[in-house]
Every structure is written in C-alpha cells, then in structure tokens.
C-alpha cells in the first residue's frame, strides 16, 4: 500500500508540474486583468492541436516544437486580446468575463468542425519510457515535462522581477492609474499579459502531447483544475500557482486512488468550492 501511495504521489507531483504551468498563465492574466480567463482551456486545446499537426503532418517532435509553439501562442493571445477581447469589452469586467467565454465557445466548436470529436494521440520514442528509482517506476516524458515546467516558471519569475517589461506588468497589476501616470499604457500591458499567459499554454501543449490525447473538449479537462490551482494558490500569485499546481496534482492522483476512477475527480471540485467559500484569498493571498 505504501508503495502504491508513493507511486501515486510521485505521479501526481509530476503531472502537477504541467498543471502549474497552465495555472501560471491563468494567474498572470488574472493578476493583471482581474478576470478569470475562461478561454484558457480552449487556448490550450488549440495549442495542442497545433503541436499535434506539427508532429503528425510534418514529423516535428513536440519537444523541438516548444519554442515555436510558445512564440505562436504568444502572437495568438496578444492579438486575441488586442483585437477581440479588449476591443469589444471596453474594460468592463463582466463584458471581459463573457468575452473570454464567447472565445472559448468559438474555439471549442471551431475545433469540432475542423477536426471532428475524435481523440488523437501521437507516439514519440519515449512515450512509454520509464526510469527505475528504487521501487518506483517514473515516466520519462512526465519527468521531462516536470523539469521544463519548473525551468519555464523560473524564467517567467525572473522576467517579471528583473526586466522593465515585467516591472510594467506588475505596476499595472497593482495600480493601473498610477502606472498610466508613469507613462505605461495599461491596454498594451493587458494584451502583453494575455499574450504571455497564452504563450505558456503553447509550452504546456508541447509537454503534454507525448503523454496525453487531444480532442476539441480536452481543454475542459484542464480548465477546472487550473481554476482550482489559481484560487487555491491565491488569484494572481506566482508561488501560489506553482505550489497549488503540485498540491492539486497530488490531490487528484491520491483522490483517484482512494475514491476510485469515477468519483475521483470530485476531490478537485470539492477543494475548489471549499477554498472559494472558506479562504477565497487562497494560500498566498494573491501576493505578486
């Protein structure tokens, strides 16, 4: 039993790395725009289809496609905010919320029209590679995705802390009016933050594809999980998203072990509701 539990914890921790990456983008967008990006799961789905197309049609390995997909998704996210969400919502909170929902509905169904509802997978040479560590068998692609996710989180961290652009984003997040007086244009920063948040999904998609499937509905698998992580960690908090991602990965894995496959997913939703009701500021109080 101890070994099964340990294996489940390790597995959950590794999956949690990708969750954290998805949640980092969500928390960045929340921190700056103060809305929940309901299109997050759909944008991840879009990135996964992009990665799948590169792999299945052109034979480009998902890991090699990572820089390209990150750049492409940045452009997608930036334009989406600049030309669609920002333009139609005119800064009204409820309108932004509903606009991201509208974008999600459009993207999900566009994928359904283009790719049908079938699930697709690719097989890389290392899809089933495992590493033996004592009594544990660790999936190599999961380990890679975990490592890369942590590196990307660290890069984002130093970008936000050290560069002028990062400082500008943090300034707008905290005090949009004050930032405007300092010569920062908040609408540009909104698009930039949305672009970076979406770029992280491009990376996440490349890390996910060797171990997961893609279908038009795949975003919904990750979206509630990502919301939970962001709320648990504290909306807008970077360390919160990271710690939350790892915790939720393990919760899900152990929840599935204890409650069984069909009831397992409830553990995430319950953590989510409990956090929202009891401690909506999350573990890290949205510290930026």
């Amino acid at each position: 039993m101890g070994e099964i539990l340990a294996a489940s914890l390790v597995n959950g921790l590794l999956t949690g790395g990708i969750y954290a990456l998805v949640a980092l983008g969500l928390t960045l967008i929340y921190g700056v725009l103060h809305i929940v990006n309901f299109a997050h799961g759909s944008l991840l789905m879009m990135a996964m289809f992009g990665t799948w197309l590169l792999a299945a049609q052109l034979g480009i390995d998902p890991y090699l496609a990572l820089p390209l997909m990150t750049a492409v998704m940045f452009a997608v996210g930036w334009s989406l905010y600049r030309f669609v969400i920002g333009r139609i919502s005119r800064g009204d909170d409820r309108a932004i919320l509903l606009a991201t929902l509208g974008v999600a509905v459009v993207l999900d169904n566009l994928a359904l029209v283009l790719f049908t509802g079938n699930t697709r997978q690719i097989e890389t040479p290392w899809t089933f590679a495992v590493l033996e560590v004592g009594p544990l068998l660790i999936s190599v692609p999961k380990l890679i995705s975990f490592g890369v996710a942590l590196i990307l989180a660290a890069l984002l961290w130093s970008f936000m802390a050290r560069t002028d652009m990062g400082r500008a984003i943090r300034a707008v997040a905290r005090e949009p009016e004050g930032a405007r007086l300092m010569g920062i244009r908040p609408d540009r920063i909104f698009a930039l933050a949305y672009g970076i948040g979406t770029a992280l999904l491009g990376a996440a998609a490349c890390l996910l594809l060797p171990i997961f499937y893609v279908s038009p509905g795949v975003g919904s698998v990750f979206v509630l999980v990502a919301f939970t992580i962001v709320v648990l960690g504290g909306m807008g908090s970077f360390p919160g998203a990271l710690v939350g991602g790892l915790l939720i990965g393990m919760t899900e894995s152990v929840g599935g072990l204890v409650l069984g496959e069909s009831l397992g997913p409830i553990s995430i939703s319950l953590v989510f509701i409990a956090t929202l009701l009891l401690r909506p500021t999350g573990l890290f109080r949205g510290a930026r």
Binding site: D93, L97, L224, F227, T228, S269, F272, I273, L276, L277
Partner: peptide, 9 residues
C-alpha cells in the same frame, strides 16, 4: 468571476 467559478464547480 468568483461566483461564475463556484457555480461551475
């Protein structure tokens, strides 16, 4: 957003 999320959950 928070209310939207909790109803979804």
């Amino acid at each position: 957003s928070y209310f939207a999320l909790v109803t979804l959950a």
